[in-house]
């Protein structure tokens, strides 16, 4: 006799559903975490925390709905909370209230994933990839986020609005500004390489 109510799953059923529906999102989720934190250990912690929370609240997840968007939303919120702790911002500041204010302290760090491998053996594709990655990593985190969600993960504006807890109009304007700023960085690079637009 199996229970169909959703809220009353046995532990085995819950674990099986959890693994089947949520674990396949692991790779995109880890990539998102890495692009947010720019640090492998932080990304690791963030993803683990996200899955623990997802497990705890799994009863609220409706089977067959958008598991990827749900997990991305949890991860994004966890990231904001961590970020608040680290930068000692008052916890009551809501994300929507910091719209328009971009903390750039966290983006200087590493040189992104652009590495030191021999330029001559690198293919043009790798070169472009590295340059795009470092240009993206140099963007403020809010800008980086919308570009990743939209262009890399293919979320719709509506899904992005839910993940980020902002209106669709804000998604649009943020995406627009993010792309302009990314374009500027890449155009600088193109010029430095002797290309003119």
């Amino acid at each position: 006799m199996s229970e169909q109510t959703g809220k009353q799953l046995s532990k085995e059923e819950k674990d099986a559903r959890f693994e089947a529906e949520l674990l396949p999102v692991l790779a995109p989720l880890y990539n998102f975490a890495y692009r947010l934190t720019l640090d492998e250990d932080d990304a690791n912690d963030l993803v683990q925390e996200t899955y623990l929370k997802a497990y705890r609240f799994f009863d609220y997840f409706e089977q067959g709905t958008n598991a990827k968007a749900w997990l991305f939303r949890i991860l994004k919120n966890s990231f904001i909370n961590e970020f608040r702790k680290k930068s000692k911002q008052p916890a009551k500041v809501d994300y929507s209230e910091v719209e328009g204010y971009y903390n750039t302290d966290d983006v200087e760090g590493e040189g992104g994933v652009a590495s030191t491998s021999d330029m001559r053996t690198e293919s043009v594709q790798d070169l472009i990839g590295d340059e795009v990655a470092s240009a993206l990593n140099a963007l403020p985190v809010d800008f980086r986020t919308v570009i990743i969600l939209c262009d890399l993960e293919g979320f719709t504006y509506e899904e992005m609005a839910k993940i980020l807890d902002i209106p669709i109009g804000t998604v649009r304007s943020r995406l627009h500004r993010a792309r302009n700023s990314l374009k500027e960085k890449l155009e600088e690079y193109a010029k430095s390489m002797g290309y003119n637009s």
Binding site: L26, N31, G129, I147, D151
Partner: peptide, 10 residues
Amino acid sequence: ISGHLKRVIV
């Protein structure tokens, strides 16, 4: 972005 940005390995 969708075509050339490398995915990090989990």
